[in-house]
C-alpha cells in the first residue's frame, strides 16, 4: 500500500490550537507541502505573526522566528539580506499585516524585497475575539461594530492586494481561498509559485488567502463557508492580481 495523502514532513505532530473549522491549519499544511516539494526545508526561515497564528513555530518543522506585531516584513528583510540563500517567508493575518503592519508591508513591497508573504484574510481580529479589522466588510457585525461596519464611521474594507499592485517592487500578487477542496488546491499552486519566484530571485510575492472564522463571525461552519463564497469573494475576488514573471505553474 502507498500513502496517497498524509501529514507533510514540514509539519510537526503538535495539535493545532485553532478553533474548529479555522482555515489556518489548511494553509499551514499547504506551506509545509510546498516546502517539501521544493526540497528547501533545511534552508527555510518562517516568520510568525502576532495573532491567531502566533504559535506557528510549534506547528512547522523548520526554523521559525517570531516578530513584534505587524513587523514580520521588517524582520524578513533583515534575515533575507544577511542570509540571501535562505527561503524567507512571513505568515500574517489581517490585523497584523493590514492594520498595525501596513507601513512595513507597503515599504517592504515597494523595496521589492525578495521575500514571500502569506496573508490570511478572515476580515476580523480572531485572537482577541472578533473586533473589526481593516478588511472587515461593510455591514459586518463585530464586537466593535455591533450594528455592522458603516463606511461613514469606520471607512471601507482595505483590499491589500489591489493596493500593492501600483508599487513597482511587487512581482506576484494573488488571492485564494480555503473554503473548498478546489480552492485549497488553487491556493497551493499560488503559494508554490510565490516560493518559486523567491527561489529564482525575482522579488516580492504576496498570496492573500480568504479564510473562514466561524466562532468570531458567530456562524456555524457551513454558514461561514457560504459567507466566504457569497460576501467575501464579491468584495475580494479570487485570482492572480499581478504577475510580472510570465511564468506558468
Amino acid at each position: 500500500m502507498k500513502k496517497l495523502f498524509g501529514k507533510p514532513e514540514s509539519l510537526t505532530t503538535v495539535n493545532h490550537k485553532y478553533c474548529p473549522g479555522c482555515g489556518h491549519g489548511i494553509v499551514h499544511r499547504l506551506i509545509a507541502e510546498v516546502i517539501d516539494e521544493l526540497g528547501v526545508r533545511e534552508k527555510t526561515i518562517g516568520i510568525a505573526p502576532v495573532g491567531c497564528a502566533v504559535f506557528a513555530y510549534d506547528y512547522w518543522n523548520f526554523d521559525v522566528t517570531e516578530a513584534s506585531h505587524g513587523r514580520p516584513p521588517a524582520v524578513a528583510t533583515g534575515i533575507k539580506r544577511v542570509l540571501p540563500d535562505r527561503v524567507v517567508f512571513t505568515y500574517q493575518g489581517d490585523g497584523d499585516l493590514a492594520a498595525i503592519g501596513m507601513a512595513e508591508t507597503i515599504h517592504a513591497a515597494n523595496r521589492g524585497e525578495n521575500i514571500t508573504v502569506i496573508f490570511i484574510n478572515n476580515a476580523i481580529y480572531g485572537m482577541t475575539t472578533g473586533q473589526m479589522a481593516p478588511t472587515s466588510l461593510l455591514g459586518m457585525k463585530t464586537t466593535t461594530t455591533p450594528f455592522g461596519r458603516e463606511a461613514k464611521i469606520a471607512g471601507y474594507p482595505i483590499k491589500v492586494s489591489e493596493l500593492l499592485v501600483t508599487l513597482e517592487g511587487t512581482t506576484y500578487l494573488a488571492r485564494g481561498a480555503v473554503d473548498s477542496a478546489k480552492h485549497v488546491l488553487e491556493a497551493k499552486k499560488a503559494i508554490k509559485k510565490a516560493f518559486e519566484i523567491q527561489l529564482s530571485g525575482k522579488g516580492y510575492s504576496l498570496v492573500e488567502i480568504l479564510s473562514q472564522c466561524p466562532p468570531n463571525w458567530k456562524m456555524s461552519v457551513p454558514e461561514s463557508l457560504e459567507y466566504v463564497r457569497k460576501e467575501m469573494m464579491t468584495q475580494f475576488p479570487l485570482g492572480v492580481i499581478k504577475d510580472k514573471t510570465g511564468m506558468t505553474v
Binding site: G6, C22, I26, A181
Partner: peptide, 19 residues
C-alpha cells in the same frame, strides 16, 4: 474512492489515506 477531498480541507491534518 480515495479522492482525498476530505484530506484537502482538514485543518488538523487528521486524515491519512493509503491505497
Amino acid at each position: 474512492n480515495a479522492c482525498g477531498l476530505c484530506f484537502q480541507v482538514c485543518p488538523e491534518v487528521a486524515i491519512e489515506i493509503w491505497k
